[in-house]
Design a protein around this nucleic acid. Structure first.
Length: 506
RNA sequence: GGGCCCGUAGCUCAGCCUGGUAGAGCGGCGGGCUUUUAACCCGUAGGUCCCGGGUUCAAAUCCCGGCGGGCCCGCCA
């Protein structure tokens, strides 16, 4: 019996979810009359002689299997098969819902088939896969065995789906922007460079979909979004990874206040859909923090937040005073922009304290080259950032739609880079994008936009220690190892012969 | 880019400080067991101590270099 030769499918008629939903009424020792077929991976086996307990994971959840010698139909043959069953094998079982004497809802198995076998030993049941290197290297095992990783991955899907459903209901469509671009933009970050051989040209990987989604706005797609992969060639830490997912949303005829309202309602909807409530509990050490996503969220300007949490007044300070404040806080100035210094001070003294979903508003103009200057004070932009559980998860603004001013800001960025290069070294600026300016010259309506980091959001909601824990598969340097076919050439020969793989037509 | 830590059986780890040539639990394999939940009991096999070099009579252990991974700081979301 070799399932890799003989078995191509299994007819599944029920899931663990269905069994749990419909048979919770079963009394201890009871067996239902209905017969179902489930399939999945064997996660544990407890052998007791003529009765064997196993745990099946069918992708939805786990359920106990009970194999009884007197019940298994074609006894001798199947019992022999059961004796060689391993944790990690994939099986299909036919049986009846039941509850054991100890009260565990189970499937009393009447027949089963092995659908595929594992060639490798699975991690042990106590600690599972815990070594960080092995967890990332064998991420499929990590995802299979570690429930927190599994939950994060499932909830990324749910949140993304809820975002899509919400935006759909509000008349938005999703448009995919290019990941290969001649000029990068939409954020201040170092890009990956690559090469398009077909065009004999260099290209950048997208650091953000922003400038393309705004081109879509210009094209009369007045409500657009994208759940986009972004690439930024920066170093990795607990909160940063070179490849991440953002949802970016742009809505014409709106300003930043409209966008804040849209975002808090969308987020609240997604949280309710995913976690069943607007309020979710997060365990931080011994204490439990309740995060409440019900709109409206608190709004506080970045300078007020610094004053509130850090007891430091930065409004209307002159440049040298700001430098001194930063220095006293132990902040090393690598980028001399006034706004950057304020942002650094904010990150140091205020950000860790902001637990509840909060809009930090009125960001400095000079670090917001794509945002529209404030109608009240041109030193600020109509720009907000979203904070949840001390993490920055999003950023939005009234979009700058004036092509003349946009050109001027791009020009200023380039000048700034040249000016500070000698004293501070390379800083990230937004590069001149004349093609984007030309698009604006065709007329972009007043528009508001936002970007929300999905991995960051999940990280905040699940209190994950590292952003990597929310990313399904991460980059890892290849290691030397042997496949089973390399290790055991007899097995290789067996399959080549058995499946006639070298029988060529001549 | 700077600093710190880790790499030992399939898995989780001890041994390293203080050098004497490898251990436990789980898992595997064999046996027993018809209601277990990390089942239990008996037996048994299993190692490139990440790689390379050095010191030493002797290196998993000390030193140097490399590879892989993690954490913190700087830059970026």
């Amino acid at each position: 019996m070799d399932p890799y030769i003989s078995t191509y499918r299994y007819q599944v008629t029920a899931t663990t979810t269905l069994i749990r939903d419909n048979y919770s009424y079963l009394e201890k020792g009871a067996v239902a009359n209905d017969v179902y077929q489930l399939a999945g991976r064997v996660m544990a086996i407890r052998r007791h002689g003529k009765i064997v307990f196993a745990v099946l994971h069918d992708g939805f959840g786990k359920i106990q299997l009970v194999f009884r010698y007197d019940v298994l139909k074609t006894k001798e043959k199947k019992w022999k098969l059961l004796e060689i069953l391993n944790v990690g094998d994939v099986i299909g079982v036919r049986g009846r819902p039941s509850r054991t004497l100890r009260g565990e809802l189970s499937i009393l198995v009447e027949d089963f088939d092995i659908l595929s076998i594992t060639w490798r030993d699975y991690p042990e049941k106590w600690h599972g896969l815990a070594d960080v290197d092995k967890r990332y290297r064998l991420r499929y095992l990590d995802m299979m065995l570690n429930e927190s990783v599994r939950q994060a991955i499932i909830n990324i899907y749910r949140i993304e789906k809820a975002f899509r459903d919400f935006l759909d209901a509000h008349g938005f469509i999703e448009i995919h922007t290019p990941k290969l671009q001649p000029i990068y933009g939409g954020a201040l970050a170092r890009p990956f460079t690559t090469r398009i051989h077909a065009l004999n040209t260099n290209a950048y990987l997208s650091i953000a979909p922003e400038t393309y989604l705004k081109r879509a706005i210009i094209a009369n797609f007045f409500k657009v979004y994208e759940i986009a992969v972004c690439f930024r060639n920066e170093d990795i830490d607990a909160e940063h990874y070179p490849e991440f997912i953002q949802i970016e949303i742009y809505e014409a005829f709106s300003d930043w206040e409209d966008m804040m309202r849209l975002v808090e309602h969308m987020m609240n909807y997604a949280i309710e859909e995913t976690y069943g409530d607007s309020v979710i509990e997060i365990h931080e050490g011994d204490e439990i923090i309740e995060l409440n996503f019900k709109p409206p969220w608190r709004r506080v300007s970045i300078e007020d937040a610094i004053e509130e949490f850090g007891n430091i007044k930065v409004r209307n300070r002159d440049y040298n005073e700001l430098l001194e404040i930063a220095e006293n806080l132990g902040i090393e100035i690598k980028d001399p922009r006034r706004g950057k210094i304020i942002e650094k001070i904010f990150e140091k003294v205020a950000q860790p304290h902001i637990k509840q979903p909060t809009y930090i508003t009125m960001f400095p103009r000079d670090i917001s080259p794509l945002a529209r200057p404030s109608r009240k004070d041109p030193r600020y932009a109509e720009r907000f950032e979203i904070y949840v559980n001390g993490l920055e998860v999003g950023n939005g603004y009234s979009e700058l739609n004036n092509p003349i001013v946009q050109y001027y800001f791009f020009k200023k960025e380039e000048e700034l880079r040249r000016k500070v290069l000698e004293k501070f070294g390379e800083i990230e600026i937004h590069p001149m994008d004349k093609d984007y300016v030309r698009a604006l010259e065709y007329g972009m309506p007043p528009t508001a936009g936002v970007g929300i980091g999905i991995y960051r959001l999940i990280m905040a909601l699940h209190k994950l220690p590292s952003i990597k824990d929310s990313i399904p598969f991460i980059f890892i340097q290849p290691e030397e190892f042997q496949t089973i076919a390399e290790r055991d050439t007899e097995i290789l020969k067996y399959y080549i012969k058995k499946l006639n793989l070298e029988n060529r037509e001549k």
